[in-house]
C-alpha cells in the first residue's frame, strides 16, 4: 500500500506485497472526517499491507493506535506495525489469519504525520475482504428480476440500513438504477454520479455503457456530507 504525502494532500496507493496498485486521489474535502475507500479484495488470509508515502513519516506517530485493522464488529485484529527503513512506508503484518468472506477495515488515523508535522487531513479507512465470492461479496449484485439486493455483511457499510434496496435494469441502450434509502440519507451516488431524488426516499439514475458483469458502486451520504454507506453491485 502506498500513500503519498504532499503538503496537506496525500495521494495513496495500495500495494499487494511488492506490487503497487494505484487506487484514486484522496478527497480534499475537509468536511468529511473519515474517507472510506472502495472495498478491495485479497485471497491471502495473512495479507501483509504496505502503505507507502511520498514523504518520510515521523516514527513516533507510526504506532498500532494510529494504524490498525478491525473487523466488522470493530474488534481489533492483532498486528505488527512497522516503519520502513526509508521512513516512507508503513508495513502492517497480521498476527492471526483473516477469515474468508469477512470485511476488515485497515484504519489510518489522521494522527499520522510527516517528519514536517503535516497531518493527514482526515482519517482513512481501507476496507478489504478475504476470499470474497466473485471478487466482490457473497450477496452483492443484482438479479434479472430486480429483487431486493439486501445488505451484505461484507460491504463497506457504516449504516447497514442506509440503502435498503437497489434495482438495476440493463438493456442494450441504457441501465436504469433505482435505490431506496433510509430516512437519514441525504444524497446517493452511483459510480460517483449523483442520483436523482424521486421522492419518498427513492433515488434513480440512468447510465450508459454498462456491460453485463460490470460493477455499480452505490454510496450514500448523510446531511453533513459524510459517507455512511458504500457497496458494489454486480450487473447481471
Amino acid at each position: 500500500m502506498r500513500i503519498t504525502l504532499k503538503q496537506l494532500f496525500f495521494i495513496m496507493f495500495l500495494v499487494l506485497l511488492v506490487t503497487h496498485v494505484p487506487i484514486q486521489t484522496l478527497q480534499a474535502n475537509n468536511s468529511i472526517e473519515t474517507d472510506i475507500w472502495p472495498l478491495k479484495h485479497t485471497n491471502d488470509n495473512q495479507k501483509v499491507w504496505t502503505i507507502e508515502f511520498s514523504s518520510p513519516l515521523k516514527a513516533k506517530t507510526v504506532k498500532s493506535s494510529n494504524i490498525f485493522i478491525e473487523d466488522e464488529l470493530y474488534r481489533l485484529i492483532l498486528t505488527d506495525v512497522e516503519l520502513s527503513a526509508d521512513k516512507k512506508s508503513i508495513i502492517v503484518t497480521p498476527k492471526v489469519s483473516f477469515e474468508d468472506n469477512k470485511v476488515y477495515n485497515l484504519v489510518i488515523s489522521n494522527e499520522v504525520t510527516s517528519e514536517k508535522n503535516e497531518k493527514l487531513p482526515q482519517k482513512i479507512i481501507f476496507p478489504f475482504i478475504v476470499n470474497g465470492l466473485d471478487g466482490i461479496g457473497d450477496d452483492q449484485g443484482n438479479n434479472d428480476n430486480g429483487n431486493d439486493q439486501g445488505n451484505s455483511d461484507n460491504g463497506d457499510i457504516l449504516d447497514r440500513t442506509a440503502i435498503k434496496n437497489v434495482v438495476i435494469n440493463r438493456n442494450e441502450y441504457i441501465t436504469s438504477i433505482t435505490a431506496t434509502s433510509s430516512e437519514t440519507v441525504a444524497t446517493v451516488t452511483a459510480n460517483d454520479t449523483d442520483m436523482h431524488y424521486e421522492g419518498n426516499n427513492v433515488y434513480s439514475l440512468g447510465l450508459t455503457g454498462v456491460e453485463k458483469g460490470d460493477t455499480i458502486t452505490i454510496r450514500a451520504y448523510n446531511s453533513d456530507g459524510k459517507r455512511i454507506f458504500m457497496k458494489d453491485y454486480k450487473v447481471n
Binding site: 433510509s182 430516512e183 437519514t184 440519507v185 441525504a186 431524488y197 424521486e198 421522492g199 426516499n201 448523510n222 446531511s223 453533513d224
Partner: peptide, 9 residues
Amino acid sequence: LIKIPLDTN
C-alpha cells in the same frame, strides 16, 4: 423534489 432527511442536528 428536495429531501429533508431525518437529522439529529
